[in-house]
Amino acid sequence: MELELLEDQALILQSCMDGRYSVRELVNRLPMHSNKTVDLLKSLESSGLLAFEIDRSEASRGRPRKMAVVTELGAEFLGTFKKLERRRLLINDNEVRRVVEQVERDRRLEAIGVDLQQRMLEIIEFARLLRKH
């Protein structure tokens, strides 16, 4: 199974853990194409990770809403996914290049006698003042 698919499935499961949503609400809420959301919801239901319950809490006007509910298996799946997420790097190659450039910049500053501890405190103070105003 592709990692991106797993991430999308986990995103839906997490959303359903965080709140009680109908299919329409999930389609509007999730940052993905509506067709993809519906396909994923069907796939999650078929895999036993998600179930749909009729919402009986509202006045019975119009079509009853089906609310997505994470199953026990779905909760286990999400927990395992989160653990696996911690076992991989989160940075990308652009960030690696940026950090390497920062370290080279700091070395140049040190070479001309800049106190890095003092410089960092100045940066922090500058950022703090920005936040205050």
């Binding site: 370290v103 700091d106 501890q117 410089r119 950022a127 703090r128």
Partner: peptide
């Protein structure tokens, strides 16, 4: 603790 052995950056 970073400026002693890593990069310098802002933090709150």
């Amino acid at each position: 603790a970073l400026p002693y052995y890593g990069r310098i950056r802002a933090t709150e």
